[in-house]
Design a protein around this nucleic acid. Structure first.
Lengths: 129, 129
DNA sequence: TAACTGTATTATAATTCTTAATACAGATAA
DNA sequence: TTATCTGTATTAAGAATTATAATACAGTTA
């Protein structure tokens, strides 16, 4: 499930944020679903609980999860309205990456094709709710 | 031109890589164009020359610039064929970001519209060569 | 009460980033 | 040739970030 590269220059907590975020947006983790507790996940991944908590706190800051004292961390339900700043940043990065892709030789057709495929998957995922 | 945020948690050399990369893909820096020397840019930005060189080395590694001893650093001419690994990574990140954008509430129409606009700009930029 | 949850704090270690001071080699113009 | 650019490399030190460790406290639940 979660795969940490301890030799990476990328901090562990950032790897966790990216991977969990990806699982949420791809529908692997559904809204309302409970995440592993800080201590359990720390033991599973053999990292310090503080590192897990740092990742969870960041995911909460950008609106992907929320926490309840004594109960646990949960995937947010309605993320659309929650964080416009995050959407703005994602949009900017999306534009930069699309420019880079074209610059590196990706064809316009392929770019549009990729987007349409993701749109299709996203609409399909909605029906699963 | 280049704007470093010294209070950012993001390393200076990474900020430089991202910004210079953006200037190259957006056409602000043209193929063959010479970049400021390591020492000159270091003085302009009030950072250490080693930090500039670290950024230049990374940009060279991913194929955006090349260097000639005694002459300087230059923007690469044909980047398309040079680095398929980089294109692969850009493609993966592009897919992740598009998923995130939809998840955060961006409409499919807007996503496609953004892509078409970037495609248009990219084709327009080619005519300037 | 016991055993889970999140949260917070303090200290220390490990890693990464940045600076500083040099030095050497290639290119170029006076 | 010499002076002055350029890139490149090395070593050392400091600063900042990341990660761990050891606790402690509070809320939830069976």
């Amino acid at each position: 499930m979660l795969d940490i590269d301890f030799r990476s220059r990328k901090p562990i907590y950032e790897q966790l944020v990216d991977q969990i975020k990806e699982m949420i947006v791809s529908g692997v983790l559904k809204g309302g679903e409970q995440l592993p507790s800080v201590r359990v996940l720390a033991q599973q991944l053999t990292v310090n609980p503080n590192t897990i908590q740092k990742a969870y706190r960041e995911l909460e800051r950008i609106g992907y999860i929320y926490s309840i004292q004594g109960k646990g961390n949960f995937v947010s339900e309605k993320i659309e309205a929650s964080n416009q700043e995050e959407l703005k940043m994602v949009k900017e990065n999306l534009q930069k990456l699309a420019q880079q892709a074209l610059f590196l030789g990706m064809q316009s057709d392929e770019l549009l094709q990729i987007m349409e495929e993701i749109i299709k998957d996203h609409q399909g995922g909605k029906r699963d709710d």
